[in-house]
């Protein structure tokens, strides 16, 4: 497969206008699309894993730093509010506030090393462990927020993966792992595992709705009442509520299709691991699902809304090109042959 047709399309005439009508900005945009298309099609599994390392590492290190004041506020709450979970479940009283500060700073600094791929075999596990401790402690104050689960699971996989074999300081300075073909299986494995973890979390969330809400979750008024209740609580407790809630909530007929879409997207997530086209459709649906949650409930899932949560799925799409039904496939076909 060559990319000629796609490159032609990307290079410009899709707008329907003649070349004389094109502005310099159009031309730059067309060139960018060509470059992006070629880059996307030429990427190999090791590079795809490096993209994940860089994108998720930079986001997570920044997240650790930006959220530090919030975590410090939590660490100063009254002891009676402390309800440890996860790796901190063994605690019977809160840790000193400075522990949160150290965890946050270690997470941010090791996250920079992780992103750069510096001494990755050491810094990656340190980063993942620091983030786990830091984020888990933030959930130990009476309420578990579900916006960070997928992030920490992805970081855990990356910490165990050979994600610094390309575009890293280790690679530049010669300490990255070998370039044998066995490594390519390992890169592919890590990307697949990240996507599988994503699918697993969405499936569990969908199953919870079926188990707890039953058929009524789709056919009844459950979703509408949940959205109304959540927005009302925000209004009464001084938070930002959805600007669309008041407009949409009176229209009951809107909500059963939304509920059905939610369940199909969540329960159907594992199918994205099997077929490439389903992966494309599911990724778009999941992204739309989170934008819908933001619009209707003012609930922000930053990792998902920034597309980072779905980057493993996107990377699977490109490294599985030519093998639509086999995600553990070995023979990746790179379609750029124009050089």
């Amino acid at each position: 497969m060559t990319s000629t047709a796609t490159l032609d399309a990307a290079s410009g005439d899709s707008s329907g206008g003649s070349s004389a009508d094109r502005t310099p900005a159009d031309s730059r945009w067309a060139r960018f699309r060509v470059w992006l298309n070629r880059w996307w099609r030429a990427i190999d599994p090791a590079q795809a894993l490096a993209v994940l390392r860089i994108a998720l590492g930079a986001y997570s290190a920044g997240f650790a730093l930006v959220r530090l004041p919030y975590h410090l506020d939590l660490a100063r709450l009254e002891e009676r509010r402390f309800e440890p979970v996860g790796v901190w479940a063994w605690l019977d009283q809160p840790l000193p506030v400075w522990v949160t500060l150290v965890l946050g700073l270690v997470a941010a600094v090791s996250g920079i090393a992780f992103t750069l791929g510096w001494r990755y075999q050491v810094t990656a596990p340190v980063f993942a462990a620091a983030m786990l401790g830091y984020l888990t402690y933030g959930h130990a104050w009476g309420q578990i927020l579900h916006t960070e689960h997928l992030l920490i699971l992805h970081l855990g996989v990356l910490a165990l993966a050979p994600a610094a074999d390309r575009w890293s300081l280790d690679r530049r300075w010669g300490s990255a792992r070998s370039r044998d073909t066995r490594g390519f299986d390992r890169h592919r494995w890590a990307i697949w595992l990240m996507a599988a973890v994503t699918a697993g979390t969405y499936f569990v969330a969908g199953w919870a709705k079926v188990r707890n809400g039953g058929v009524e979750w789709i056919t009844g008024d459950v979703l509408r009442s949940q959205i109304a209740h959540d927005n009302l609580r925000k209004e009464l407790l001084g938070d930002i509520s959805s600007p669309f809630a008041a407009t949409l909530l009176p229209h009951a007929w809107l909500f059963p299709p939304m509920a059905a879409f939610t369940l199909v997207a969540e329960l159907g997530a594992p199918l994205a691991l099997v077929w490439r086209r389903v992966n494309q459709a599911w990724t778009a649906a999941a992204l739309g699902f989170h934008w819908g949650i933001l619009a209707l409930m003012a609930v922000l899932f930053p990792y998902q809304l920034a597309v980072l949560a779905f980057l493993p799925n996107l990377m699977l799409m490109t490294i599985q090109r030519g093998h639509p039904s086999n995600l553990m496939s070995h023979q990746t076909k790179h379609s750029v042959s124009t050089e």
Binding site: V85, G86, A89, L132, L135, T136, H139, I144, H146, E148, H149, I152, L153, G156, T201, V204, A205, A208, K209, R211, N212, G213, G214, E216, W217, G220, D221, V222, L223, S225, Q226, A228, H229, D230
Partner: peptide, 17 residues
């Protein structure tokens, strides 16, 4: 429901108007 593993119970239970 814990961290990082959860049964994601949010918004899953029936709720009246």
């Amino acid at each position: 429901d814990s961290f990082p593993f959860s049964n994601y119970p949010m918004f899953s239970f029936p709720r009246d108007r």
